[in-house]
C-alpha cells in the first residue's frame, strides 16, 4: 500500500463517524436525501450518496429520525427530521465531539 492509499483509508475512517453527527445536526428542520447531501456539501462535509441514504434509514430505524413523504411537488420526496430522542443524541454527540476536538487540538499542538 502506498502512503497515499494508507492516508485515504485513515482519512475515511476518521470521517466515517462524523457523518452521523453532521446529519443529525442538519435535520433540525426536515430535509430530503438529496437536499441534505447538498446542504452537507455546502457546509464542507463531503459524503457519498451511497453512504448517506442508507444511513438515514438506519437512524430512522433507531428512532432518532422520523420520515414523511411529501407528494405536493412534482417529485415525491421523503423528508427526514429529528425526533425528541434524536435531539438528545445530537446534544450528547455534540458534547462528545467538542471534548474530542479539545483533546486532539491539545495533543496535535504539542506534537
Amino acid at each position: 500500500m502506498t502512503t497515499e492509499e494508507t492516508l485515504a483509508t485513515h482519512g475515511q475512517e476518521l470521517r466515517r463517524g462524523t457523518v452521523v453527527l453532521a446529519a443529525l445536526a442538519s435535520l433540525g428542520e426536515p430535509r430530503y436525501g438529496y437536499a441534505l447531501l447538498q446542504h452537507l456539501a455546502r457546509a464542507g462535509i463531503e459524503v457519498e450518496g451511497n453512504t448517506l441514504y442508507p444511513l438515514l434509514r438506519r437512524l430512522e430505524k433507531q428512532g432518532l429520525l422520523v420520515s414523511e413523504w411529501n407528494t405536493d411537488e412534482s417529485r415525491p420526496r421523503k423528508f427526514y427530521a429529528l425526533t425528541t430522542e434524536g435531539r438528545g443524541v445530537l446534544t450528547a454527540l455534540t458534547q462528545e465531539w467538542s471534548a474530542l476536538n479539545t483533546a486532539l487540538t491539545r495533543l496535535t499542538a504539542r506534537g
Binding site: 436525501g33 438529496y34 417529485r75
Partner: peptide, 15 residues
C-alpha cells in the same frame, strides 16, 4: 426504498 432512490437520482440529474 425504490421510490426514494428514484427521486434522489432524478434530483441529482436535475441538478
Amino acid at each position: 426504498i425504490a421510490r426514494e432512490l428514484r427521486g434522489t437520482i432524478e434530483d441529482t440529474v436535475a441538478a
